[in-house]
């Protein structure tokens, strides 16, 4: 997100403090003094991870600190789930299987490892899916399960959730 704050000592700390208060994790702080328009205002870009549903609370705390949020960038895919699938993956169009998840728009396959021991023998693949929210992940897994049923594939889900 991009923040705007008064260029005074202590302001940056004041802007960062609410992030840890809501359980967020700061990945990067980019701080540039090249905005010509106003010398008394400082532009700061922060890349951060937030627990689901805490964004509103963070914005409220930042406003209380007198920090103006200029822009909230795109939400990254923070939830990850790795599954294993076994069956005739190539014959049943693996790229279509992946597409069915990717076309949801809110979850995507970010990693795929494939093992094909022999022609006509079932192959095994490990699929990593990432999504923006836990709900979207559940939806992606539901899609994968129904695709697996249609294509007669075995899906092995993780024991612990996302």
């Amino acid at each position: 997100m991009k923040l705007e704050m008064r260029d005074q000592p202590g302001q940056l700390v004041a802007a960062l403090q609410p992030i840890s208060a809501v359980g967020g994790n700061i990945i990067a702080v980019i701080h540039q003094r090249e905005t010509p328009a106003a010398t008394e205002v400082l532009d700061v870009q922060i890349v951060l991870e937030l627990p689901e549903g805490r964004l509103e609370k963070l914005l409220e705390l930042l406003r209380e600190q007198g920090v103006n949020v200029v822009r909230i960038g795109e939400q990254r895919l923070l939830y990850e789930c790795t599954l294993i699938t076994i069956g005739h993956l190539m014959h049943t169009d693996l790229s279509d299987t992946v597409d069915r998840i990717d076309t949801t728009g809110s979850a995507e396959v970010t990693d795929l490892s494939l093992a094909m021991p022999a022609i006509n023998a079932p192959s095994s693949a490990r699929i990593t899916i990432r999504s923006t929210t836990r709900e979207e992940m559940k939806k992606a897994i539901r899609i994968l399960r129904s695709v697996a049923e249609q294509k007669d594939l075995l899906i092995i889900e993780p024991l612990e959730g996302v």
Binding site: I84, I86, G87, R126, I156
Partner: peptide
């Protein structure tokens, strides 16, 4: 019954 050694290796 359908599990493969490859699936175990991927895990």
């Amino acid at each position: 019954t359908l599990l493969t050694p490859e699936a175990l290796r991927l895990a």
